[in-house]
Amino acid sequence: MSLRHPIARARGLGSAKEGTHHWWLQRLTAIALALLSPWFVITAVCLLSADYATVRSTLAQPLNATLMLTFVLSLFWHAKLGLQVVVEDYIHTRWLEVTLQVTIMFACALASLASLIAVARIAIAS
């Protein structure tokens, strides 16, 4: 039991000034995904019965390649931000939290890099 007042314990432990930035990034990536998802779904549905050459030529168009790259980056960034919040809120064992945060960061970076390379190869090679 402590004789210190709760205000005295909390003083100097103000916000890290990071929460608002994280919140805004999550909202901006959500808006980007909301705008890009209809394009992605329509493109994917139109290419369902297409052959390999048609898919490559469609993704090789500059507008489609740019939209695909933007979609992929927004998707993985949004996923990283969301998973980070889930881990921070529900994992209370410090070593497990750090391990999961690092794993999520590397997994999202690796997946986004692989996606960017794949789209770039399709756009450049065609």
Score class of each variant (00 low, 15 high):
45 V>W: 09
45 V>L: 10
45 V>F: 10
45 V>A: 13
46 C>P: 11
46 C>E: 12
46 C>D: 13
48 L>M: 14
49 S>V: 08
50 A>F: 05
51 D>S: 03
51 D>C: 10
51 D>P: 00
52 Y>V: 15
53 A>L: 06
53 A>C: 10
54 T>M: 05
54 T>C: 07
54 T>L: 13
54 T>E: 11
56 R>F: 09
56 R>G: 08
57 S>I: 07
57 S>M: 03
58 T>E: 14
58 T>A: 06
59 L>Y: 09
59 L>I: 08
59 L>G: 13
59 L>R: 08
59 L>A: 03
59 L>N: 10
59 L>K: 04
59 L>F: 08
61 Q>T: 02
61 Q>V: 15
62 P>N: 01
62 P>W: 02
63 L>R: 05
64 N>F: 04
64 N>E: 10
64 N>R: 12
64 N>S: 01
65 A>G: 10
65 A>M: 00
66 T>I: 15
69 L>C: 11
70 T>E: 12
72 V>G: 00
73 L>N: 13
73 L>Q: 06
73 L>G: 00
74 S>I: 02
74 S>Q: 08
75 L>T: 08
76 F>N: 11
76 F>H: 06
77 W>H: 14
77 W>A: 12
77 W>C: 08
78 H>Y: 14
79 A>M: 07
79 A>P: 01
79 A>V: 15
80 K>Y: 11
80 K>T: 15
80 K>H: 12
80 K>P: 14
81 L>D: 01
82 G>A: 13
83 L>R: 09
83 L>T: 06
83 L>W: 10
83 L>M: 14
83 L>I: 13
84 Q>Y: 13
85 V>Q: 01
86 V>A: 06
86 V>K: 01
86 V>G: 01
86 V>I: 15
86 V>W: 06
87 V>L: 09
87 V>H: 05
87 V>C: 04
88 E>I: 12
88 E>V: 10
89 D>P: 06
90 Y>W: 15
90 Y>Q: 06
92 H>C: 14
93 T>R: 09
95 W>G: 11
96 L>P: 06
96 L>W: 03
97 E>L: 13
98 V>W: 02
99 T>F: 13
99 T>Q: 01
99 T>E: 05
100 L>D: 02
101 Q>N: 03
102 V>P: 02
103 T>A: 07
104 I>Y: 07
104 I>W: 13
105 M>E: 15
105 M>K: 08
105 M>A: 12
106 F>V: 04
107 A>Q: 07
107 A>S: 05
107 A>E: 01
108 C>K: 06
109 A>K: 01
110 L>S: 11
111 A>H: 01
112 S>P: 00
112 S>G: 11
113 L>G: 08
113 L>N: 03
114 A>Y: 03
